[in-house]
Write a protein that binds this DNA or RNA. Structure first.
Lengths: 237, 237
DNA sequence: GAAACACCTTAACGGCAGTCAGGGCCAATT
DNA sequence: AATTGGCCCTGACTGCCGTTAAGGTGTTTC
């Protein structure tokens, strides 16, 4: 619970994360090096736009949002990452400065991996470079999806899609939970909290009930149709 | 003018492109391998969503759009790339399938680089892996900007920003040209063509005149203010 | 137990994007 | 000269998001 040394359990957790997936345990340990997991309370600012990007983070626990701030105090949430995700790698390979701010939105335990350390191992370990490329490519794909969603779907459809993403169930009825508060969800899908309330009220008509963070979907299939959550290119087999 | 063998001139051009930037000329030639530049007419479909991603493209000339298609026939333009840009790398490193369609929007001359060929050289050439990572990271940054723009700016501001991006001039008055037709611009910034017309009409009030593809900006600074095109974090020195 | 706060909802209103429909201009075709 | 098609603009209408303002509920704090 306090900032502490890496437990074996943590190594296993890290080994399940993007760049380290399926990596031999010894390699993971070497790569992490002297990095220790640290606790961060909610609202902790991890880095700001323009800070030198000399390291990246791995989330053992908790949630972190990446966002930009406009001069008039508005926030624009680009991503929210949870347990088992990493963030901040891209900035190290590009400009060398973070293009966004990072803030803890749920008490978190993070490992910070220094860039120079990573670069050393990148040179030695071809596999690792491929892994990093794959991580970046997957993130790339996610961004493309975010962009098409925000361009082509209504806020109600985006909200529905967000809710659907919280469960694996594809038909019938199901109960699930919102992963964080509604203000953050609103920022994530690109609308104001007031609009989210109204969108939720509209979803109620198609059998989606939301009390606090608890959501009950009467007919998942119906919601999926409303959101046009179609499988990508069913024409290809 | 026909599909032909690589001219020395072309090698130079490729050497100026992302993954190959500043690479020794010999290395570029090796990497390209047997790939020959090919001509593609406007409207040529280069690949579709779901196609196996076994190669990527480099643009020697012309323009290419990446887009997704919804079942009801609508198109959603993710990116438009021009001369000197590459595209399609990410899909090779991730799912192995293209998540978008690619169509030529201005007669183009392209070099297609096969993935297995690239992978071979990636293993041998550490430098190349870093370059690829940097290319992906920069693309990553661009996506983040696109997302914040579409979430936080009005269509009019996005259009203004798009126009401003066509010139280097930062103050005074300037004339420039739209790089492609207005329907594609509308799709790129995420609005309908009708809305683009109306947005242009509104821009007229702040001194932006558009005839066909010719645009004249009376006061660049004024347009920049309208678009809130502020330099990133002026607070940092 | 009252006050303060975080979180969320609702209402009223103005503005504007999407939609549908129609029309103008120009170039290529016939 | 007339037709076609590509490209773009305009108008009327609807719906919904942003804004502003107010209120409601539950939890923490003193």
């Amino acid at each position: 619970m306090p900032s502490s040394i890496l437990k074996p359990d943590d190594i296993d957790k890290i080994a399940a994360i993007g760049p380290f997936a399926d990596m031999p345990r010894e390699d993971v340990e070497v790569l992490i090096g002297a990095a220790k997991p640290r606790q961060f309370a909610r609202h902790s600012l991890l880095f700001s736009q323009g800070d030198p990007a000399d390291s990246f983070f791995v989330i053992l626990e908790g949630k972190v949002k990446l966002f930009t701030a406009t001069e008039d105090g508005d926030e624009n949430v680009v991503s929210v990452f949870g347990e088992g995700r990493s963030f901040g790698e891209a900035a190290m390979f590009a400009s060398g400065r973070f293009p966004v701010n990072a803030e803890v939105v749920e008490d978190a335990c993070l490992v910070r991996i220094m860039g120079d350390h990573l670069f050393l191992h990148l040179s030695e370990n071809k596999e690792l470079a491929f892994r990093m490329l794959a991580v970046m490519a997957r993130r790339h794909r996610q961004f493309q999806k975010d962009i098409t969603d925000i361009k082509s779907k209504t806020p109600g459809q985006r909200l529905g899609g967000f809710i659907l993403a919280q469960t694996d169930v594809k038909s019938g009825s199901v109960s699930t939970m919102l992963p964080f508060d509604k203000a953050l969800i609103a920022a994530r899908i690109g609308i104001k909290p007031e609009s989210l309330s109204r969108a939720l009220a509209r979803l109620r008509d198609i059998g989606v009930d939301c009390q606090g963070r608890d959501v009950h979907i009467e007919d998942v299939q119906r919601l999926r149709e409303f959101c046009e959550e179609t499988e990508p290119h069913p024409s290809h087999r």
